[in-house]
Every structure is written in structure tokens, then in C-alpha cells.
Design a protein around this nucleic acid. Structure first.
Lengths: 153, 153
DNA sequence: CCTCTTGAGTTCCAAAACAGAACTCACATA
DNA sequence: TATGTGAGTTCTGTTTTGGAACTCAAGAGG
């Protein structure tokens, strides 16, 4: 199967992966959430080649995750900022950060500390059930085919 | 920068991406959470070429996300199952599924429905603050360098 | 005994993606 | 006129994929 085909699968993970399932794309999003907007800033922070960066930004814009806006005329200058669809990826990034902090630590402590403005405390993200608000573990979830399924699980 | 170097960054996202930031790896994990364990089952479901699958499974085992166990002797047969470290990726997968359901839907409804055994209801995952239990939005989070940081954010 | 099947891979080749560096283009400043 | 900046594109050679066939060990069928 080709990369270009996986977005057509009847699976939300496959569709999501078709948009963000790339090392550079995930790092671009990380920097996007940290406030990076300009081409050269992404390039300098990521160390990605300019060619690949241009390609990934184009794809993220096409997917509606980033919006390219002209922030200056003469000379024309553009930046890339997260759309509402892009901002909705925040839980994904929080989950990645938390897993990395917990399972890929190097003994020097967390590279970043997250503070919740709502309560003023440093926090870690917790995934809970939308119905009962209890934390969810892998064993607590039963999966079954939904209306959009094409095959049995 | 090469793929092999990004795991050394002082960033939990980069370290996490160095392990799971690959289209096939994420789909392997998806199937792992759905109970797939054997080489040929992964291959048939994913449509990935066998040597890429062998490579990704090897890397996931090396990273401690999957464990390769002999489930039969004579002939020797092995399977791959999630370790506790791998099971800890569950929130990442839930976040990916939820984003795909919400933002990549094709109008046919959700491919999978998740039921929480704890309360017996179909649910969606919600990311909340570990301190105040309120849902977290991107705008509610302030990020600052932690003890493991190597540079200012 | 000989062939077929299953599970878990490995090997080979061509096609695609990538890294690194240099180059373009439009304007701005010294 | 020379230098710099932002946002890319082009060129070249190396890696990584995709696709298909092949290996190996053992059990099953005839």
C-alpha cells in the first residue's frame, strides 16, 4: 500500500496518520503549538531541509491543519498558523509529550513543564471518559465496528 | 537531520516521534491495541511489505514497546504483544482516533465505536488537567523550559 | 516418500523520498 | 553597488520504500 492510499481507509487512525503520520509533520506541529509561524524559524529549529519543509507545510495547508497568511506586503511574506482543525490536535501532542516524559526520559528531568492557566498548577494530561469522567486504561475499552465500518474488527 | 538523530533531542515529542513517528508504526500499534499479535496477521491487515513490517517490529521491540514471545515450539512461532510501555501509548491512539472521527470523517459515521467498560457507555476521550480535572484547550496551557531543557522555548 | 501449507521471515531490484548544498526572486537597508 | 532577509526551488547523490519472489522449519495429506 502506498502512503497516498492510506487516507482512504475506513479507519480514523489511518486517516489521521495520512495527515500527520510523518516525523517532520509531528515536529512542525509541536513547534506550531509553541508559537512558531515562519518558514525560516521552522527550518532553523527543526534542522529539516528546506525542500521537505516546504512540502510538509504545503500538505498541512492542503489538509486544513495550517493556514498560510500574508503577514506583510512588499515584500510579500507569509506565515503558517494553526487552524481550529490544527488546534484540535492539541490532545495528540499532549499525549505524545506525556509518553515521552514518562517513558523516554534521560534522567535530566522534563524538557518542558506545562502549566494549566485555569488552575495555575503544573500538570500532566489525563485521558478520561466523556460520560463518567473516569481515567481510561487500555483494558477498560471495548471496541466494536461503528456505522462507518467496512469490515469486522 | 537524520531520523537516527532525532531521538537524542531534548524534547519529549522528538523522542516519542523517534519511536512511533512513522506511518506504519502507528498502524502497527493500532492493530496491536485491537489484539493483533502475529506477523502474518499484521501483514494482511496493513498491506505493508513484509520486510518493512519486520523492520518496524524489530524497532518496536528494541524500543520496549512490543515484546516478542515464542508462543509455540516446534515449529518455533513468535508473536508480538504490547508491553506496559506500549500500553501506555493508549492515550495517543485514542487522541488520534478522536481527531480522525471529528475532522476526517467521510459522512458514513465512525468506523469504530468505543465503549467504556467502567460505565458501560459509548464515549469519546477527553484530555483533562491532572490537578483540577478540567478539560484542557491549547490556549489554556503555558509552556516553559523544565529541568531537562537545553535551550529556551 | 513426496508434495502442500503455514508462519516468520530474507533477498533482489526498481521507484520514490530524502539530505545537503547551492541557487532564485523580490524587496530593504547601508 | 553590495549585503541581507524571507520564502522558497533546483540539483545531485544517498536512503528508504514497494513489489515480488525466495528461504527455512515443521506439520498435514495422499
Amino acid at each position: 500500500m502506498r502512503w497516498s492510499e492510506i487516507g482512504e481507509e475506513a479507519c480514523s487512525v489511518a486517516r489521521t496518520v495520512s495527515v500527520i503520520g510523518d516525523r517532520w509533520t509531528l515536529l512542525i506541529l509541536r513547534d506550531g503549538f509553541l508559537g512558531i509561524r515562519r518558514f525560516d524559524d521552522f527550518q532553523a529549529r527543526l534542522g529539516v531541509t528546506r525542500h521537505i519543509l516546504a512540502d510538509r507545510l504545503r500538505k498541512l495547508v492542503a489538509a486544513g491543519v495550517l493556514a498560510k497568511t500574508r503577514y506583510e506586503d512588499r515584500p510579500a511574506r507569509y506565515d503558517y498558523r494553526l487552524t481550529p482543525k490544527g488546534l484540535a490536535l492539541h490532545p495528540v501532542l499532549l499525549a505524545l509529550v506525556h509518553w515521552g516524559d514518562t517513558h523516554m526520559a534521560d534522567g535530566k528531568g522534563r524538557p518542558l513543564v506545562l502549566r494549566h492557566k485555569g488552575c495555575g498548577c503544573d500538570f500532566t494530561p489525563v485521558t478520561v471518559c466523556s460520560r463518567c469522567a473516569e481515567p481510561i486504561a487500555a483494558r477498560d475499552v471495548r471496541v466494536r465496528p461503528g456505522p462507518g465500518a467496512r469490515r469486522a474488527v
